[in-house]
């Protein structure tokens, strides 16, 4: 829907100095010190000159920013439930269009649905799929901290293989989480979504450029943001950005985009650091570095390599065409 022509002009972020300096989030929220998801939210919102409508799913970002009567949001914001941010955002987008047609709304705002990995990979997957299929003009952001952190670090289908959580504990029989992380990007891309990308809070320029590109699309878009949780992953609050950076540099979390089906790696990692550099910062993987779990570590390494190869192959094939 062509509600706001200004939005259709995509400008990549060239310099940190061009970023909007008017704060979109107020301090005083109750997120933990060093919260990765809050960094993601700030970077996303600062990257835009216009104020989007944000529809939050239930989760860490939602509860910590909205304790009545305190709201940290300096953009129009609403929370309804856990599993339906994509559906609520669909309604907002359709309503804006109806009001615009009736001449009661001057300009449509960008709509951002914001959910964690639980609200996206698990309980919100159906609503997300529906919204993608219907083609609403909205950006769906998944801030991925790889478990249900708000309820106390329970595993989700985004939790990586081998990771400790409170429902994938490490024991004689269990290696931490026994299943591999769901390929949410693959699911989204399979919908024919015009633009989907991964991003990391450590690579702000890449992230902000992707937000701008997503918002400029005339249809549904998806951003999968890696947002470490120091409480859940068991690392020092000061290391949030460093952990996110190492996830990229070890190829654990590849940064790429898929524009109209075309894959492109936006942050190439020619010489990956050893995976241990990423794992060793985090308590949730500490068991993997013990000799008795060397097989599990080997398996995780092969999962990481396979994931990278798959994306790399998709990107290379299309580069040749």
């Amino acid at each position: 829907m062509e509600g706001n022509s200004k939005l259709s002009q995509f400008q990549p972020v060239k310099s940190i100095f061009e970023i909007n300096r008017e704060e979109r989030m107020a301090p005083g929220h109750r997120a933990c010190a060093g919260c990765g998801p809050m960094i993601a939210v700030r970077q996303i919102l600062q990257s835009l000159d216009v104020k989007p409508v944000v529809i939050s799913a239930t989760g860490c970002v939602e509860v910590t920013t909205s304790t009545y009567p305190d709201s940290a949001w300096l953009v129009p914001w609403a929370h309804v439930a856990f599993e339906n941010s994509a559906a609520v955002a669909s309604g907002v987008e359709a309503a804006m269009h109806a009001l615009k047609v009736r001449g009661e709304l001057k300009e449509e705002r960008p709509v951002i649905a914001l959910a964690g990995d639980g609200g996206t990979f698990d309980i919100g997957l159906q609503a997300l799929s529906g919204a993608l299929e219907r083609g609403h003009r909205m950006l769906y952001v998944c801030y991925d901290n790889e478990a249900y952190m708000n309820t106390g670090i329970q595993r989700s289908s985004a939790t990586p293989f081998g990771a400790w959580t409170t429902t994938s504990p490490v024991g004689k029989e269990w290696p931490g989480k026994a299943e591999i992380k769901k390929d949410i990007m693959g699911i989204v891309v399979a919908h024919g979504t015009p633009y989907a990308a991964t991003a990391s809070i450590s690579h702000w320029k890449d992230l902000m450029t992707k937000v701008r590109k997503a918002v400029s699309q005339n249809g549904p878009t998806f951003l999968h943001v890696y947002a470490p949780c120091n409480r859940g992953w068991r690392f020092e609050p000061k290391d949030t950005v460093e952990v996110a950076k190492r996830a990229v540099e070890t190829r654990f979390f590849p940064l790429y985009e898929v524009e109209n089906g075309r894959y492109r790696i936006t942050v190439p990692v020619a010489k990956p650091r050893p995976l241990e550099d990423f794992l060793s910062l985090q308590g949730r993987f500490s068991h993997l570095l013990k000799p008795e779990n060397s097989e599990t570590l080997k398996e995780l390494k092969s999962i990481v390599e396979e994931r990278w190869s798959k994306i790399n192959a998709a990107a290379s094939v299309q580069a040749q065409v």
Binding site: A26, A72, V75
Partner: peptide, 15 residues
């Protein structure tokens, strides 16, 4: 509620 009201909430005793 009006947005941005959390600013009145002080978190300086967290650190």
């Amino acid at each position: 509620h009006e947005g941005g009201s959390s600013k009145a909430y002080v978190t300086n005793d967290w650190r």
